[in-house]
Design a protein around this nucleic acid. Structure first.
Length: 684
DNA sequence: CCGCCCACGC
DNA sequence: GACGTACGTGGGCGGA
């Protein structure tokens, strides 16, 4: 399995913010699993594999393992090597008779674009497996009918395998069963690496790639241009130096293990109520993410270059001005040094705010409040903005342009977010600036693929508030959406007891803040901070809000109550999030869990909806001869390369697909706004 | 290499 | 008296 470090980095992303509680439960979960595990039964077919709780003692051919983890040497499974066309054809013939099989590719690199295919391992029965070398396109073509046929393809982190095969001109067809996705849904707080799953669910320790013998020490060329930073950190091993028999054994074992894992995880999905989420959302979404990543998006480097020059001038001016006012040179990029200047030397304020670690706080909110005290503060804030835009976007994005097609290919992570949202990395194309004027310039660099194309942006309007209205059933909020009112204005009118046309801009702005705060489970203190008003006034506003929208209040209370009873909350499709801290004696920890309980059904249902929409829209684009492509997803927005000749027919159908993807309870209407333009900013 | 601070998006 | 808006990714710093 060549992509272990890649998986690892995904698991690391998922674990980045977990606390000790989670680690503890992970260990107990492991222990529990280790007791109930089964090993190399030969009947791991769909829907019949024993669950974690079953001992499996009566399974014929099965063995029960009490403590020690087994390895290949002890189990002695039979693996076959296909390194001739005759043997490959023999393998293909066997595949044709199977309704489902597992496959796992071996390649020369972790970089999905730089990777050259070496071979493919298959398994459709526990304890058995094949490895076929794929020396050239002709050899790969032998497997094309199988890979594009209708059998269910099982794999671990299939996104990588599908991407590499797509780069070799082979588009694998579903249905898919990805054990990484399945385990992410069943046990989101655990690690999901194949080795970990093999040990915890099968009681088996697979061969480690690093333990395989190597003929020589030649490293593969081109690894320095791996754009997947997380994976690039780990040293790549030269796969071509491994004797083929040993690589075959290793690869077939991985396919075998993954096949067995699928047999265990399949019923577990049912046990956890994740059937719909897995089979109707995440599994069909997988190849769509592969297609979007493969497509990439065009960048106008000239726009970025000009923007960068302007920005650098501004940075130089501002830093000179700040240093002059500070009275000495220092590193303006260091919050530590900046704090010492402002609060230690310049004594800008009597009681400076400190961070958790005792450092002076210099974030935007803190500095803004100090702006009237000294002109240096405004310059610092302006410097911060310019320097952020330059380093994170203007300087970094060009480095992600792939040479082969001059486009940027992000990675979409399907299940790293606790709510079910996608995440994007390397580069992150879900946080491209839009709010500030300077930031918006960067959006102009995202352009259509060429002549005859335009960028289309289609976004859900107020989707989270619509979902809250729908899930809570609150009549007042539902009515506002039925009448297609501006929800913040409608809220302001209700809370202030005035007519819609009497709502002042400041009233709407406050109402907007409250609406967002409600979704996030805000407190009176939090709102008072945001609005810069006394806590008592904030509490009053929240009180009035709940009087006007009593259903919302009931929904929030009921959601927290249900979380305490069940230990989890659910989205509209049944996606679950476990909240072990919901009964914590520590009020702060419990409060965090309660806010997560309120926010997750809302944010998670919005994620469900747009994922379902992506499946529908992708089918739409594939159903006929269509040159338009879906490129990006930004939580409530889809971005397309739109062929201008297709605009009239396609845009209404995309809107319809997005609106019908997940009908809301209480018939709350769903609104989708669209725009087109010569760049991403214009499309908005 | 990693934690921290900060800032970008929704 | 402390603590207090959900979910992410990433750059730069600074200490190990």
């Amino acid at each position: 399995m060549v992509d272990v470090p890649l998986e690892q980095s995904i698991a690391d992303l998922a674990l980045r913010d977990r606390d000790d509680e989670a680690v503890k439960s992970l260990l107990t979960e492991f222990e529990f699993n280790a007791l109930g595990k089964r090993l190399f039964g030969d009947d791991f077919v769909a829907g019949r594999g024993a669950g974690l709780e079953k001992s499996g003692g009566e399974e014929k051919g099965g063995e029960i393992l009490e403590a020690k983890l087994k390895t290949l040497a002890e189990v002695a499974p039979s693996y076959e090597l296909a390194d001739t066309d005759a043997r490959r054809r023999e393998l293909v013939k066997l595949l044709e008779n199977q309704e489902r099989w597992c496959f796992d590719i071996e390649t020369t690199s972790l970089n999905r674009f730089g990777a050259r295919l070496l071979g493919i391992a298959f398994s459709w029965k526990g304890g058995e497996g094949w490895y076929a070398t794929v020396p050239d396109q002709a050899a790969l073509d032998l497997f094309r009918p199988a890979l594009t046929g209708g059998a269910e393809k099982i794999g671990h982190n299939l996104k990588y395998d599908l991407a590499v095969l797509l780069n070799h001109g082979l588009e694998v067809n579903g249905p898919f069963f990805d054990t990484l996705i399945a385990h992410s849904l069943v046990a989101p707080d655990q690690r999901h690496s194949m080795d970990y799953l093999a040990e915890s669910l099968l009681g088996y320790t697979p061969i480690k790639l690093s333990d395989l013998p190597r003929g020589d020490t030649n490293q593969p060329a081109g690894e320095e241009d791996d754009l997947f930073a997380h994976a690039a950190k780990s040293k790549e091993l030269d796969m071509t130096a491994i004797p083929v028999e040993r690589l075959a054994e290793y690869a077939a074992e991985d396919a075998d293990v993954t096949y067995q894992l699928s047999g265990i995880l399949r019923p577990e999905l049912e046990n956890h109520g994740q059937r719909q989420v897995f089979y109707e959302i995440e599994a069909p979404l997988l190849p769509i993410l592969v297609a979007m990543e493969h497509e990439g998006i065009a960048l106008d480097l000239e726009v970025l270059r000009e923007c960068g020059e302007e920005m650098q001038k501004r940075i130089d001016q501002l830093s000179a001005s700040v240093v002059r006012q500070a009275g000495r040179d220092f590193n303006l990029n260091s919050p530590k040094q900046l704090g010492e200047i402002l609060f230690g030397e310049m004594q800008l304020v009597d009681k400076p705010k400190k961070t958790r670690t005792g450092q002076f706080r210099t974030d935007e909110q803190t500095l803004s409040s100090l702006a009237p005290r000294h002109p240096i503060v405004a310059d610092i804030l302006a410097y911060r903005e310019a320097s952020k835009l330059k380093s994170t976007y203007i300087d970094a994005l060009p480095g992600y342009v792939e040479e082969k097609d001059q486009r940027v290919h992000t990675h979409f992570h399907q299940l790293v977010a606790a709510t079910g949202r996608l995440a994007s990395s390397d580069p992150n194309l879900q946080n491209i600036p839009v709010r500030s004027a300077a930031g918006r310039e960067i959006r102009k660099a995202f352009v259509p693929r060429g002549e005859g194309f335009t960028l289309l942006s289609a976004d859900y309007s107020q989707i989270e508030l619509r979902i809250m209205a729908a899930m809570s059933g609150d009549p007042g909020m539902i009515e506002a959406f039925e009448k297609d009112l501006d929800i913040h204005t409608a809220t302001a009118a209700r809370v202030n007891g005035v007519e819609l046309d009497a709502v002042e801009p400041s009233m709407r702005s406050t109402a907007k803040m409250v609406n967002f705060g409600i979704i996030y489970g805000i407190s009176a203190f939090g709102l008072s901070q945001r609005l810069g008003i006394p806590r008592g006034e904030a509490a009053e506003i929240i009180d009035t809000y709940f009087t006007q929208y009593p259903g919302v209040k009931e929904f929030m209370d009921a959601t927290v109550q249900s979380a305490k009873e069940n230990g989890y909350v659910e989205t509209l499709t049944g996606r679950r999030r476990f909240l072990r801290d919901i009964t914590s004696a520590n009020a702060t920890i419990r409060g965090n869990a309660e806010r997560a309980a309120i926010n997750t059904p809302i944010q998670g249902s919005a994620a469900d909806m747009i994922k379902l929409a992506m499946i529908r829209v992708h089918e739409l684009l594939r159903s006929g001869p269509c040159r338009s492509r879906m490129l990006l997803q930004v939580h409530d927005e889809l971005v397309f390369d739109l062929h201008q000749g297709e605009e009239e027919e396609l845009v209404p159908r995309i809107v319809e697909a997005m609106q019908q993807a997940l009908p809301l309870p209480n018939r709350v209407p769903i609104k989708v706004d669209t725009g087109t333009g010569a760049n991403w900013l214009e499309a908005h």
